[in-house]
Simulated assay, not measured.
Amino acid sequence: MPYTPEKPREYRITPRYIANSDADVSPPIDRLLDAGWALSRDEQANTYVTAPDLRARLAYLPEGDNCTYWKISAGRDAFAPPEWLVTFDHKTPPEVVEDFTAALADAYAQGPDAYLNNGPRPDGAGTTLQLLASGWRLNPATPFLTHQSPDNLIRLHRRDQFLPHASEMAGDTERWLFEVGPPRDVWYATASSRLPEHLLHTLANTVADPAPVHRHMRRVDLERLPAVATATPMAPSPLEVARVRAASSRSLSVPRAAPSTLAYSTTTRPPALPQAAVAGRSR
């Protein structure tokens, strides 16, 4: 069957942070399950993953009360409020979440000192210096301390004022806010004040990772990608090729009527030729 603008086609999208969230959400969860964390679900099909000592946890909340689908937190005690909270909204590419959960699983395996902040409250200086060294720049036009990526598609905002810890853990405010994508199609990630510096560094790196990802997209979706994006059409899968060959074989096997049985009319026109397949678009 020929490709049409109405039929999604698989593309390799670069950078990944401008790809949509229409992908498998299992890998971010599987990273923790592979590390021995426990899985549970509620009656609304929200998913929860908890560390063996109950100090760290992930919640995937597609049926939650807002657009925050991913909440990841850790604390010193299973029954105490968490020390830090990281969130991702519903438009976040799952690959970004997966990289962070992989880093958390590794840190958890090293013990509490690796995934909890046991020193002074981090100011993120090491992370922001690393961003500046990578070509990011300060944007003085915002009310926050804002770092902007070289392609202008990622903004990292830092609130300088005092933030009540309870408000941060409730998701009412945040120390760090990542704003990613063009103005018409932005997704958000947040981190609270007490996130350990190395996990903040990991979060910044995974948000800004330009690695390509695969997505099924329509022509209209491709038109919405920013100019710096690259969308490379992928070769059809063996299953798709087999389906096309089977359809072609069936059409060729249909017997044609003999010429003598065709009714002739001077007003009859041959059927229109099928439109040529629309080539995949590559930026």
Rank of each mutant, 00 (worst) to 15 (best):
P82I: 02
P81A: 09
F79G: 01
K71S: 04
V86C: 12
K71R: 14
K71Y: 01
T68Y: 11
W70K: 14
P62R: 15
E83C: 01
G64K: 08
A80S: 14
K71W: 02
W84G: 07
P62W: 11
Y69T: 09
W84F: 15
R76P: 04
F88Y: 11
F79I: 00
S73V: 03
R76G: 13
D89P: 06
L61C: 03
H90M: 14
W70T: 14
P81H: 02
T68K: 01
Y69H: 14
A80C: 13
V86R: 15
W84L: 06
Y69D: 08
E63P: 07
A80E: 15
W70L: 10
I72C: 03
D65P: 06
E83Y: 00
E83I: 00
C67Q: 01
P81D: 03
K71P: 05
T68P: 00
A74R: 11
W84A: 08
F79N: 03
F79D: 04
I72G: 03
E83R: 00
P62Q: 08
A80P: 05
P82V: 02
R76S: 13
N66E: 12
G75H: 04
P82F: 10
P82W: 03
S73E: 07
D65Y: 02
A78D: 01
P82H: 07
Y69M: 03
G64S: 05
A74Q: 13
G75S: 12
F79P: 00
G64Y: 02
R76C: 06
P62E: 12
K71L: 03
W84D: 11
A74P: 11
W70D: 15
F79W: 07
T87E: 10
V86M: 09
E83W: 00
W70R: 12
T87G: 04
L85K: 04
K91Q: 07
P62H: 15
S73N: 11
T68V: 09
G75T: 06
P81V: 01
D89T: 06
N66C: 06
F88D: 03
